[in-house]
């Protein structure tokens, strides 16, 4: 470039000349290359999801029938369905949610509303660590504490393990969502002489309820898909178990796991059917959450 920085206006080359000098075709090529690489990476990210969806839907749809939804499995691959697993998943996730939702929401409220900065950081850190613990370790803990002493695989232990997976998710989303509630709203409550607990319960929590509910639903979806924590707690069962939490119980992920590793085609197909059910449930929850927040924004 001909111009030296800091020269007086009059001594500069004409504008058009300088513009031509700085125009870099190399830079534009580089732009294009980078954009293409980024696009390719993005496509690679989406392909697995599409592949999984396609695969599970095609394989699962073939196995999907009324029997799968309404009948327990028959002896070794002679038909029947996944009713034991469907009911088991529903029960164990429901019990886990019953424990994890109050604990998680109240924990999130504590961190966002009451905790000092130090204890908030401590709880937040604890929740993050718990969320990062491999789920099989949570299963081992539940096994040690709730299976070994009773010498009995049981659904309650499975629910506790699932609850441990749900709690940190709920704590963190509740906290984040409540922190989005404007300070002015809390102050409006305080300024009316409303006690703190009432402000939290009647003003802050309702204002953040959509977000809190989103966190709960995502935690439920996450727990419904967990296999490892159930392997040596609820164990799985070929019998329909309703309400007997002291006994082994099946779950959709366990049903898939057990069915897929048998050298029996009929069981493999049932596993695909169960996989589709699980996928539909998890996707359904995710879509419902998105739809809620979209509807919220639009309204």
């Amino acid at each position: 470039m001909s111009a030296t920085p800091g020269t007086l206006a009059g001594s500069r080359a004409p504008f058009a000349e300088r513009l031509a000098a700085v125009r870099g075709s190399r830079r534009r090529t580089m732009d294009r290359v980078m954009r293409t690489v980024a696009l390719a990476a993005a496509v690679v990210c989406v392909i697995p999801l599409a592949a999984i969806l396609l695969f599970v839907v095609i394989k699962g749809a073939a196995a999907l029938n009324l029997d799968l939804l309404t009948k327990p499995p028959k002896a070794l691959g002679t038909g029947g369905g996944a009713l034991n697993a469907i009911l088991g998943s529903l029960q164990m996730v429901a019990l886990a949610a019953l424990v994890a939702v109050p604990v998680g929401v109240l924990g999130g409220i504590y961190v966002s509303e009451f905790a000092s900065r130090r204890s908030a950081r401590a709880v937040r850190f604890g929740a993050d660590v718990l969320a990062g613990v491999p789920s099989i370790l949570i299963g081992i803990v539940a096994y040690t504490l709730l299976v070994l002493p009773f010498k009995q695989f049981n659904a309650a232990a499975g629910s506790v393990a699932l609850a441990l997976i749900m709690v940190p998710v709920i704590v963190r989303t509740t906290e984040e969502m409540l922190r989005l509630v404007p300070r002015e709203l809390r102050e409006a409550g305080y300024a009316l002489g409303v006690p703190t607990w009432r402000v939290v319960l009647s003003v802050v929590l309702p204002a953040g309820r959509t977000g809190v509910l989103t966190g709960v639903m995502l935690a439920v979806a996450r727990a419904a898909g967990e296999t490892a924590p159930l392997l040596f707690t609820a164990l799985g069962s070929r019998l329909v178990n309703v309400g007997e939490f002291g006994q082994p119980m099946d779950a959709l992920p366990l049903f898939i796991y057990n069915g897929a590793r048998q050298p029996i085609t009929a069981l493999n197909e049932q596993a695909w059917g169960a996989a589709l059910l699980l996928l539909l449930f998890v996707l359904g929850v995710n879509v419902a959450v998105r739809a809620r927040s979209w509807g919220r924004r639009a309204g």
């Binding site: 709203l185 102050e187 300024a191 009316l192 002489g193 409303v194 009432r198």
Partner: peptide
């Protein structure tokens, strides 16, 4: 604070409450 009320810079009615509920909120939640 029941005897010393306050009005803020930006209007801050409780978003989850009706007009009636907002006016009644201090008495209901107090």
């Amino acid at each position: 604070r029941r005897l010393v009320g306050m009005v803020f810079q930006r209007p801050n009615p409780f978003p989850t409450m009706s007009i009636y509920g907002n006016v009644a909120s201090g008495l209901r939640l107090g």
